[in-house]
Amino acid sequence: MATDMHIFLQFMKSTLLPLPGVTNKMHFEHPAFYVNDKIFANIHEKEELLAIHTIEREKWMALDPHTFFITPHYQNYKYMLVRLETVSPNDLKQLLITAYLARATKKLIKAYEEMKANE
């Protein structure tokens, strides 16, 4: 894994693994993050891309079509691709947390909100 990819994976792990119910395991030979047994983020290391669950992809793609885009494979799914080399850390963190909350159960969301209130 390239150094940059290692840094991105560490950033994602440090952002996501403390969240209630998040697990990290492989998905078709790619590191992925799950909550409630549902995948919400998947790193494609060779292409330096992140496939992320989102219902706001049109907003993101309009904002920066070079960084946020889809391929025909993702056309009918609530995912978009993110170029890791050009995404800002703040946007990446916002996308990750939003994807987590969209896939988490109400119980996990409540635990997340309690965790944030205690920070």
Rank of each mutant, 00 (worst) to 15 (best):
A104Q: 04
H27A: 13
H44Y: 14
E29P: 04
I55Y: 02
D91E: 07
P20C: 10
W60T: 00
F33N: 01
V22M: 09
K38P: 14
E113M: 12
K38Y: 00
L9C: 04
I39A: 10
L17P: 00
H27L: 09
F28H: 14
A104W: 05
P65L: 02
L95Y: 03
N36E: 14
R57W: 04
D4Q: 06
E58L: 05
L81I: 06
H44C: 09
M80K: 03
E48P: 11
Y77G: 11
L81E: 05
H53G: 03
D64F: 09
K46Q: 10
S88G: 12
M12K: 14
A102S: 13
D37Q: 14
G21A: 11
H30N: 13
E48S: 15
H30Q: 14
H30C: 05
N76R: 14
K106W: 03
K106F: 03
A51L: 13
H66P: 02
S88N: 12
I39Y: 04
P31I: 01
E45W: 02
E114G: 13
M12S: 02
Y79H: 11
K107S: 10
L16T: 02
I7E: 00
V82P: 00
K107E: 12
H73I: 08
A102L: 15
L101P: 05
A104K: 03
D91W: 00
K110S: 06
